[in-house]
C-alpha cells in the first residue's frame, strides 16, 4: 500500500544541514502525531544513506551497516514522539540512536559478557514506563496517544510534568530548576494530570 510512496534518493545536497534541521523536525513531528509514512519517507531518504556511510566507516561491513541503518530507522519510526527539538537537532538525535545501537551491536558481536548497555551510558530513548499516578486509566490507551494529549497541555504544565515524569526529577528539583515555589510545581502537576485525565475521559 505504500509502494506508491517515492523514495527521494537523489539530489538533496542543495539542502544545508541547518535548514534541513527545521524541515526534518517538522517531519518527525508529523510522524509522531499522525504515523505519516510520507513524512517518514522524507526523513528516511535524507538519513538512511548517511547512516549507511557512517555505519560502513565504523563497522566496515555492508550487512552490519544495513542492519544498523534498519535498526536505527525503525527506532525513529516507532519513537518519533520522543524527539524533542529543544534538546537538539534531528541529526543529533538520530546520530545518537545509531551510536547507541552500534555500542550494543558490538557488545553482542564480540560476545562480551559485560552487563553494561548503551542506555546506561547515554539514555536516548528511555520511555517512561506506565506511571502509577496515571495507572487507573484505560489500558488500551497507548503511550503515543497519551503523548498527543500531553502536547495539548499548557506550556507551563507540560514543562513540569515532563521534568517529573519523563526526566524523573523530584518536585523540589523542578522547583529549583524553574525557579518557582514548590507549591506551584505541585499545583501545576495536579492540574496537568487532572487535565490529562479529563482529555482521556473525553477520548473514551
Amino acid at each position: 500500500m505504500l509502494i506508491g510512496i517515492p523514495l527521494e534518493n537523489q539530489k538533496r545536497e542543495d539542502c544545508k544541514p541547518k535548514e534541513c534541521a527545521v524541515e526534518m523536525a517538522q517531519y518527525l513531528d508529523t510522524v509522531a502525531n499522525k504515523r505519516c509514512k510520507i513524512a517518514f519517507s522524507k526523513v528516511f531518504s535524507y538519513f538512511a544513506p548517511r547512516l549507511r556511510s557512517y555505519a560502513l566507516k565504523q563497522m566496515g561491513n555492508e550487512a552490519l551497516a544495513m542492519e544498523l541503518v534498519q535498526d536505527t530507522m525503525s527506532n525513529v519510526w516507532q519513537k518519533a514522539h520522543l524527539f524533542n527539538s529543544e534538546k537538539g537537532s534531528p541529526s543529533t538525535w538520530i546520530f545518537t540512536i545509531a551510536r547507541n545501537i552500534r555500542f550494543d551491536m558490538l557488545r553482542k558481536l564480540q560476545n562480551r559478557k559485560e552487563d553494561v548497555c548503551s542506555d546506561d551510558i547515554w539514555p536516548i530513548l528511555c520511555e517512561q514506563t506506565a506511571d502509577t499516578k496515571i495507572a487507573p486509566l484505560d489500558q488500551q490507551i497507548t503511550l503515543e496517544e497519551v503523548g498527543q494529549f500531553f502536547e495539548g497541555l499548557p506550556k507551563k504544565q507540560k514543562a513540569v510534568v515532563e521534568a517529573i515524569y519523563i526526566d524523573g526529577k523530584s518536585q523540589q528539583e523542578v522547583a529549583d530548576d524553574l525557579d518557582i515555589p514548590l507549591g506551584t510545581v505541585k499545583s501545576r502537576t495536579r492540574l496537568a494530570l487532572q487535565r490529562l485525565k479529563d482529555m482521556l475521559k473525553e477520548y473514551d
Binding site: S74, M105, T129, G168
Partner: peptide, 12 residues
C-alpha cells in the same frame, strides 16, 4: 526486525 539491539533500561 531480527533482534533489535537497542534495549532501553526501564525506569523501574
Amino acid at each position: 526486525f531480527c533482534d533489535g539491539y537497542y534495549c532501553p533500561v526501564p525506569q523501574s
